[in-house]
Amino acid sequence: MSGDSDLIKLYSSRILALAADIPHLERLADPDATVKKRSPLCGSTVTVDINAADGRITGFGQDVKACALGQASAAIVGANVVGRTLAEVETARDQLKAMLTQGGPVPDAPFDGLEVLQPARDFKNRHASIMLALEATLEAMQTAAKEQCA
């Protein structure tokens, strides 16, 4: 029964509030790059559109079909990603992964709100869904950078 109790604690009111208020849920009309990522384990998906200029995200839209943890992650990413560089998004992605899998510290600001997901460390089957928003954003930035150089 403690497993059920741990799962209930995992879905805290803060996580549920974030999941209910995800910013930038409108897809961009003319994105520089679009990437869709899917978690093979649970089927969660996140599609990210970005516009970029001078190496920074200038526009962001997302379509999130994920569990509450994936939605909470997408909410934090969406609230903080505009104006960020590829290096900042890559660092946030790496720090989130380390926080979940290696007991690493909370990601640096402005992505430090991802600390709300620390209780998910013990639920490895949820990690992929939590990672989707940052992974899709990073790949979209890499794609946009290649397109702008071509």
Rank of each mutant, 00 (worst) to 15 (best):
P119H: 15
E90W: 00
V64R: 02
I50M: 05
Q95H: 03
K97Q: 07
S44H: 11
V81D: 06
L41I: 15
T47Q: 10
G103C: 07
L86P: 03
D32A: 14
L117W: 00
D54C: 10
R126S: 14
A29R: 12
D94Y: 11
E88Y: 14
T58I: 07
K65R: 14
G43D: 06
A66Y: 05
D49L: 13
A133Y: 00
D32Q: 09
H24W: 02
F123S: 08
P119W: 14
V106K: 06
K37S: 08
L28F: 11
E88K: 14
R56K: 14
G104V: 12
V64N: 01
A66G: 04
V116T: 10
R126Q: 11
V48A: 08
Q102R: 13
D54P: 11
A72H: 04
R121L: 12
A66P: 03
A120L: 11
N80R: 08
I130S: 04
L100E: 04
H24D: 11
E135P: 07
R93E: 05
E26A: 15
D54A: 15
D112N: 15
L132I: 02
L25A: 07
V77K: 10
P40S: 06
L69S: 06
I130H: 05
V116C: 02
T34K: 05
L69H: 07
L96N: 12
E90G: 12
A68C: 03
A79W: 12
E135M: 09
H127T: 12
R84V: 01
V48M: 08
Q95N: 04
E139Q: 13
A33L: 04
L25N: 10
E26C: 08
R126A: 14
D49W: 01
L41W: 07
P23I: 02
K97C: 06
G43K: 10
C42S: 06
L134K: 03
V46T: 09
L69Q: 04
A33C: 06
V81R: 04
A75N: 13
D112A: 13
M99N: 09
A136T: 00
I130E: 01
G61E: 03
G83F: 09
R93D: 03
C67L: 06
E26F: 13
K37R: 15
G104A: 07
V82S: 11
A52L: 02
T101D: 13
D30R: 10
M99L: 13
V77Y: 11
F60E: 00
T58H: 08
N80A: 10
T47V: 02
N51S: 13
K124I: 14
D32M: 10
E139W: 01
P40N: 01
G70C: 09
K65Q: 13
G55H: 10
A128S: 14
R38E: 12
P107C: 02
H127S: 11
L25C: 13
D63G: 08
R84Y: 00
L117G: 00
V46E: 02
